[in-house]
Structure formats: C-alpha cells, structure tokens
Simulated scan of single mutants.
Amino acid sequence: MRQPKLLPAAVRGWAEQRIGPIVSVRDASHDWDRSRVWEVEGADGVHRYVKVSPSVKFFTREGRAYRHVVPALGHSRAPRLIDSRAEDLALLLTAVPGAPAKELGLSASDWRAVHQQAGALCARLHEAGELGRADRVEAEASLEAAADGAEKYLTRAGDRLTDGEQQLVRDHAAQLRHVGPVPVGFVHGDNQPRNWLFSDGVLALIDFERTRPAALVQDLVILAVTQWIDHPDRARAFLSSYGRALSDAERYALRCLTALDAVNCLSWGPDNGDELVTARGRRTLDRLMRESGS
C-alpha cells in the first residue's frame, strides 16, 4: 500500500484564502506517482478538490477545458473550476456526487445505462464550441501525431514485443496516416469508467487534464479495448445516445489506434508497475495478431 500524499502547505494556504479554513484532507490521487489530488472539507462542511497537475501542459489543458469546454456538459455533470494557481500548477474544484463507475459493482443493465449517459455527455463535449484555426490544425494533425509516436513506444517497450508484433504496430501506424478525413473537436482524452462518477442514476465526468483538440474517435480507444470488447451491448448503448454512427474512416482509425494503445500500454505499464494497463496492452496485441493470421 502506497503512503498517502501530503497536500503542500503553500497550496493549502492558497486554497484556504479562497474557501476558508480546511478541516480535513483526504488523498484522492490515482495510484501512480505523478497523480496528486486531495479531497478537502471546509469549515462550512462543503467538500471540494485540490489538484496539482503533473506538468505545465496538463495544467494549461485542464484550466482551459474547465473554462471553455466543460460547461457544455451541463449542471452537476462535471466539477466547476473555482480558481487556479499557475505557480503551483494547482486547481481548486467543486465536487460532484458519486463514485467511479468501475468501483460500484454495477449490474449489466446499470452498465448499459452508464454507457448511454456517457455517450450523451461525450457528444456534448465533442460538440462544445467551434474550433479556432490553431485548434483545428492541431485536431486535424492528431492522427498523424499518434502515428508518429509509434516508434517512441516501440523503443521503450523493447523486447516485450516480438518482431512480428512490432511489425504489426508499424503497419497500423502507417495505415493510420491514410484513413482520410474524420470528425474533429475537443476530446476528453482519458475517457473511461474511472473518470465517470455515478450516483442516483446520474453520470458525471471528471479529470480533464488531457482534454484537447483531436480526432473525436480517439476518445473511444480505451472503451473499445476494455469495456466494449466483451460487452458489445455497452457499445451500442453508448453510440445510441452519442447521436451518430461512426464513419468508415473512424472505424478504420479506431482499429489502428488500438494497436498504438497496445504498444503504449506495454511500454508504460511494466515500467510503472501497472498490471491492468500491461494486461490491456497484451490482450489487444494478442487479439490483433490472431485476427491478422500472424
């Protein structure tokens, strides 16, 4: 069991200037070393969250998302940004009800309901505002950028992949460059049940540090290789409320992106002691190899 992370004194002092005295603090970080999130209770009895971003890039993305994208989700469907402090990469957020869907032991019908709401929320996020010129350029280049990352992850993964598996990843990266135009907008960037809070039949989204302009299909990759591969009913529920079917180009891109996700998982997971991420990558890669006849 990891040691609880301590809320830095300077960040606590700044938060107390905004909300008054803090009477209790609970480490709410994800189980990886760069995640730093605390649930704090004020003297008024209200619970809020303090987050210290792992990098300037993530701090900038998340602050922008809360100001310009997240409001499209609607009341109580995501936290609100109370304030931010660039010196410490700190964000002060309201709390939304619920616990991560993955922790709730949901029934099959509840999972379908969760995915149906997730599809509707993702549609709102993906349609949030018009992309400016620079954002559109970034979004339209996002699949090419994903393909460019393949060699970096292959190098990091090293002999965790066979020669045949490495070639399969390279082939999918090459194919990704030629899928043609796909819809673009703002994506959540880590769209999965650990970032879906569910309570009393209502779903909310959290954690927007990876929110950015990109090909919208990139928000479906983790779901495709975890939730949907064994539960196609969840995929149908999500897409029914998402409001449109994926285009042929998106379906093709999604397959290519799952191969890149696999090598990313196999480069990151073992190095960070994350058995679930490692297993996700291995399972996807094994399936793609079987389907390719290799």
Rank of each mutant, 00 (worst) to 15 (best):
Q3P: 08
P4M: 09
L6T: 15
L6Q: 13
L7Y: 05
L7Q: 04
P8W: 01
V11N: 00
W14Q: 00
R18P: 00
G20T: 09
V23N: 00
D27N: 10
D31Q: 10
W32T: 07
W32C: 05
R34F: 12
S35M: 11
S35F: 12
R36H: 14
W38D: 02
A43S: 15
D44W: 11
V46N: 02
H47Q: 15
H47M: 11
R48E: 08
Y49H: 12
V50K: 04
K57H: 15
R61N: 11
A65Y: 01
Y66Q: 07
L73G: 10
S76I: 09
S76M: 15
A78L: 05
L81G: 00
I82C: 03
D83N: 04
D83W: 00
S84M: 11
D88N: 02
L89E: 05
A90S: 06
L91M: 14
G98F: 10
A101R: 04
K102I: 12
K102P: 00
E103F: 10
E103N: 15
E103L: 14
S107T: 15
A108V: 14
S109K: 08
D110M: 11
D110R: 15
Q117W: 08
A118M: 05
G119E: 10
G119T: 10
A123F: 05
L125E: 06
H126K: 03
A128M: 05
L131A: 08
G132P: 00
G132K: 04
R133L: 14
D135I: 00
D135C: 02
R136E: 14
L143M: 05
E144N: 12
A145C: 09
A146G: 03
G149Y: 09
A150Q: 06
K152D: 13
T155C: 07
L161F: 08
Q166M: 09
A174E: 15
Q175F: 03
H178C: 09
V184F: 09
G185E: 06
V187S: 06
H188F: 01
G189M: 10
D190P: 04
D190L: 08
N191H: 14
P193S: 09
A204K: 07
I206Y: 07
E209I: 01
P213W: 08
A214W: 12
L216E: 07
D219E: 08
D219L: 06
L220A: 03
I222R: 14
I222M: 13
L223G: 12
L223N: 14
L223V: 06
V225Q: 07
I229T: 14
P232Q: 10
P232H: 11
D233Y: 01
R234A: 10
A235L: 11
R236G: 03
A237S: 10
Y242R: 02
L246T: 05
A249D: 01
E250V: 06
R251Q: 13
Y252L: 13
L254T: 09
L254H: 07
L254G: 03
T258I: 06
A259S: 11
D261S: 08
D261M: 12
S267R: 06
W268D: 01
D271A: 14
D274I: 00
T278Y: 00
T278M: 03
T278G: 01
R282P: 03
R282G: 02
R282A: 13
R282N: 04
T284W: 05
D286V: 13
R287Q: 15
